[in-house]
Simulated assay, not measured.
Amino acid sequence: MGIVKIQKLYESIKEKNFDILGGKGAHLAKLLDLKMPVPSGFVLPTTCFKLFLEKSDYYQRIQSILQNPINFENILEVSKQLQDSIMHSKFPEKFLIEVEKAWEELSKHTKIEYVAVRSSATVEDLETASFAGQAETFLCIDNLDHLYKSIKDCWASLYSPRALMYCLTNNILVDKVQMAVIVQKMVNSDIAGVMFTADVVNKDPSKILINITWGFGETIADGKVDADEILIDKDTLKILNIRIGKKELMSIRNVNACGTRIIETPHNKRDCCCITEEKIIEIAKIGLEIEKKFKYYQDIEFAIENNEIKILQSRPVTTM
């Protein structure tokens, strides 16, 4: 693969390699082969991150920091030095040209108003460690300038105190971790959620567990909302229980700037389930198909816009 060979997320990708696409990117490439409804986009492979670091005026400084031991005492200072170095580094000209080209090609392939920018680390979405929530995601990015900043922010988040702490406690060598970045058409979701193809609360592999809420799913990921909780029998697809969450807050697009904002959920949406039983079964069937492909219980993020389901990511469940 060429140094800046950006991979299109709307056609088959030959090299579905964690070392190139990161965990999240590799799984999305496999979902594309399954003809799953994945939002169109492109992946900046880990080679882009390597090129960015190597061409940086701060390269020697970054390498020097990474070669020294990181511990609980110096983790905040190390994080600041690494993140500052990345944010102050300039993009190589070749990289900017290729990203702009990928943006234009994506715009021709599908109408895009906004994109989502997601991290995809090489230690992410493994069966033994998920790295979930350690690096950043940026939603509703509206132009190239904001995209470039979000890419840097994704790379820098690899060295956040939270991510470094995760590496430290899981015996992961920080200097061996690389980061790909996923850019996808933004799903302006009416509802969004997370589906586990096993009941991770009660450790029951015979059930499917779905958490779902209004707006974007980041309120679930951040623990900001009491979402609806749905339990389904895996064999019969019978809905066993629906618990209505309070859903007091919801995330929506910020109309005055790129990004999102949190608002209070309208009262008439709080006391009812935000999804129909028919749609629940449709999502569950998709989940079972993905689980069959990956041969392991899956943690699947999805979004629904205008009644159309989109799969945002799928990773192995690590808590069963």
Rank of each mutant, 00 (worst) to 15 (best):
G287L: 11
A121S: 14
L139D: 08
I75N: 11
Q63I: 07
E100R: 07
D125C: 10
I172V: 15
R261G: 12
V225K: 06
A116T: 11
C154G: 05
A116L: 13
H27L: 01
G287S: 01
N171F: 15
F42E: 13
L209A: 11
T197I: 01
I311M: 05
F95D: 03
F216S: 13
G245W: 01
G23M: 10
I244D: 03
K108P: 04
D57C: 10
A132S: 08
I97F: 12
K80H: 14
K8F: 11
F294W: 12
F138L: 15
K8S: 09
A303G: 02
S79T: 06
R61A: 00
A192E: 01
S251Y: 00
T276D: 00
M186F: 04
N211I: 00
K8A: 03
E15F: 09
S150Y: 05
D235L: 14
I191S: 07
I151R: 06
K90P: 06
D222T: 08
A121Q: 15
I70S: 09
S120E: 02
K24L: 04
G215M: 04
A221F: 01
T47Y: 04
L126N: 10
S64G: 01
N71P: 03
H27V: 02
S12I: 14
E278S: 11
I252W: 07
D226I: 09
A198N: 06
A135Q: 13
A257G: 04
F131I: 07
D125N: 09
Q313F: 02
E104T: 13
I283Q: 00
I290S: 06
R315S: 09
V123K: 04
D271F: 08
A257S: 12
V117R: 04
F131V: 03
W214H: 08
